[in-house]
């Protein structure tokens, strides 16, 4: 009797387990189905194009642009090395290296500039009354509605030899000849910092707005002067905003095309311009594709280093 009872019990359990497995399978299938739209978008818009670019880096350049479907390392080779036209000696492509360096340097500089300008701005907005905050945010975002090219030309009007800054300085007698700002690395850096400033201000604002200002009072109460309150309390607490804002400015700066083109005057190329050159006049698509992948790698490596550094500091 006890035997049969046990059998019934075990078969019951078996049945139960069976239905459990079926239920799980169904759940997995449903989840996959629900993910499909997102997966399709990701494959078509992100993974697919990236794969095409990656494949192009291993092909031969066509004589009038495009690619010839033959395996070749030429694209990657030319990213870092160059062959002399006359005697085939191989040397490092110092022009490319200097463009990489300039891109990274100017992007870091413009990120820092945007941070230094954006932090007080965001702090100012976050400490206004709730009604006026929206107005200030609105004013910050207005330039974003304007075409990038037009904003860049506006900066040009400000910093060129006969521009506002130089005219004012000369009229007030501070200088005699205009300071050369346009078509320098400085002008590119300034342009990028200006153009991407809202991308710094908005995430900074979001985290400063969440800041508990009573903590600042507590720090003042515990003998912290203003500079220490900023350094020990405010900055650590709004770090997520600083990270987000810096990433949002650094990445587009690194791949910027219009700003260095207009404000660099063609002599100060950045990675974006170099890539465009290969797909345009250079008619070297594999090199352009390889440079694009290189840019991607630089972005990823910089982000990893940046985030890891911050984590180590907070530990």
């Amino acid at each position: 009797m006890s035997n049969s009872a046990a059998e019934v019990r075990s078969s019951n359990r078996g049945l139960h387990e069976h239905s459990e497995v079926a239920r799980r399978k169904k759940e997995v299938r449903n989840n996959l189905l629900l993910c499909t739209p997102a997966l399709i978008v990701l494959i078509l818009a992100a993974a697919g194009p990236l794969l095409i670019v990656l494949i192009y880096t291993f092909l031969k350049a066509g004589p009038y642009g495009g690619v010839i479907w033959e395996w070749s390392w030429d694209g990657w080779f030319q990213v870092f090395l160059k062959k002399d036209i006359f005697d085939d000696t191989v040397s490092i492509a110092d022009a490319h290296i200097s463009i990489f360096w300039r891109s990274v340097k100017l992007s870091v500089q413009s990120t820092l500039t945007a941070l230094i300008l954006g932090f007080p701005t965001a702090y100012f907005i976050a400490t206004r009354s709730p009604n006026t905050r929206n107005l200030w945010l609105f004013l910050i975002t207005i330039p974003f509605w304007t075409n990038l090219l037009i904003r860049t030309f506006a900066i040009m009007q400000v910093i060129r030899d006969q521009g506002i800054i130089n005219t004012l300085l000369i009229n007030f007698g501070f200088i005699e000849t205009p300071i050369e700002m346009l078509y320098t690395e400085f002008s590119i850096m300034l342009g990028m910092a200006y153009v991407y400033l809202p991308l710094m201000v908005l995430p900074l604002y979001a985290s400063i707005e969440k800041l508990d200002f009573r903590l600042i009072e507590a720090a003042y109460d515990l003998y912290a002067t203003r500079i220490f309150v900023l350094w020990r309390i405010i900055i650590p607490l709004v770090k997520p905003g600083i990270i987000a804002g810096s990433i949002l400015v650094f990445i587009p700066s690194l791949g910027a095309y219009v700003t260095p083109r207009v404000l660099g005057g063609g002599k100060n190329l950045m990675l974006g311009n170099l890539i465009e050159l290969q797909f345009g006049q250079g008619r070297n698509w594999p090199l352009g594709a390889a440079l694009s992948i290189t840019l991607l790698v630089i972005v990823m490596v910089s982000l990893l280093v940046y985030v890891q550094n911050l984590q180590r500091k907070s530990d």
Partner: peptide
């Protein structure tokens, strides 16, 4: 005098401990 020069300390209603 500003708060950071007074030998006076406060226990706040919400404690205001530094979360980081």
């Amino acid at each position: 005098l500003p708060p950071y020069t007074r030998p006076v300390n406060t226990v706040f209603q919400n404690y205001a401990l530094f979360p980081h």
